[in-house]
């Protein structure tokens, strides 16, 4: 099996899996019916993308693994999502800030992935980017509404951005698998996206009258499977049925 390609796929898919899972927790509890439906829709898009990646990963693995065993039967240390996406739904400000900080990256990443030499990956990227362009618009609009809304909303979204900023740098870290896939023309060289990422983020934050945090220290570890304490609880729910009733079909 092409281990690098397999690991590269997990690196992309795990982000969407865990973020989708977080958004799924909110269903029925949103601040308005419209935002509730929109967040559920984003979760749905992400899980749809996740299925394509894991189905492909199962094919690459070529053994008895399928999309569900890959999604739900790994131990925590083998999930390689960034720490950003596992952060909790503290309030709607955190939900939007987390989404925005991820969406801008996700959109830029998929834009490049469309020209991957790997045809399957390029096809998944082409399909997904339509959905993600909506995600970026949704979260950017809400950043502006909350930032330039009321005093309270401004304070809350500024807090959320300040707290989550420390997880942004990790988006651009490269694993061994990433480096190999970039060299093969399959993967996206994320180091080239970093400057543009912070520029785009800053533009939206400026418009939203939110201060861009000036931070020197960043958190990392997710890509090596070293997560925050939140992760175990996310997996406890995600894996519950597969663990409690192993080897059954649903």
């Amino acid at each position: 099996m092409n281990t690098n390609l397999y690991n590269y796929l997990l690196g992309i898919a795990d982000n969407s899996l865990i973020l989708g899972q977080r958004l799924g927790e909110l269903c029925g509890h949103g601040p308005s019916l419209e935002t509730d439906i929109a967040l559920t829709n984003i979760s749905l898009d992400l899980f749809g993308q996740v299925r394509s990646y894991y189905q492909y990963a199962a094919k690459v693995a070529g053994d008895n693994r399928d999309e569900d065993t890959i999604a739900m039967m790994r131990p925590e240390r083998e999930y390689v999502n960034v720490l950003l996406v596992e952060q909790p739904n503290t309030d709607f400000g955190y939900v939007i800030a987390r989404q925005f900080l991820f969406d801008v990256y996700h959109y830029m990443f998929l834009t490049e992935l469309q020209s991957s030499k790997d045809e399957t990956l390029a096809a998944i990227a082409k399909k997904s980017i339509k959905e993600v362009s909506y995600h970026v618009r949704f979260s950017s609009d809400w950043i502006k509404r909350l930032g330039d809304g009321t005093e309270e909303s401004h304070k809350r979204i500024q807090n959320a951005i300040n707290d989550l900023w420390t997880y942004t740098d990790e988006l651009f870290h490269q694993t061994e698998a990433d480096k190999k896939m970039i060299a093969d023309g399959v993967g996206v060289d994320t180091s080239k996206l970093k400057e543009q990422y912070y520029k785009q983020i800053s533009n939206v934050l400026d418009e939203a009258t939110i201060e861009v945090p000036d931070l020197k220290y960043f958190q990392k570890g997710g890509k090596q499977g070293v997560h925050t304490e939140h992760m175990g609880y996310i997996l406890a729910e995600l894996q519950y049925m597969q663990r409690a009733y192993p080897n059954m079909s649903w």
């Binding site: 601040p31 935002t35 709607f92 809304g149 009321t150 309270e152 909303s153 809350r156």
Partner: peptide, 8 residues
């Protein structure tokens, strides 16, 4: 909990 969001 959503009041501040709708107000914003």
């Amino acid at each position: 909990n959503g009041e501040w969001v709708r107000d914003a």
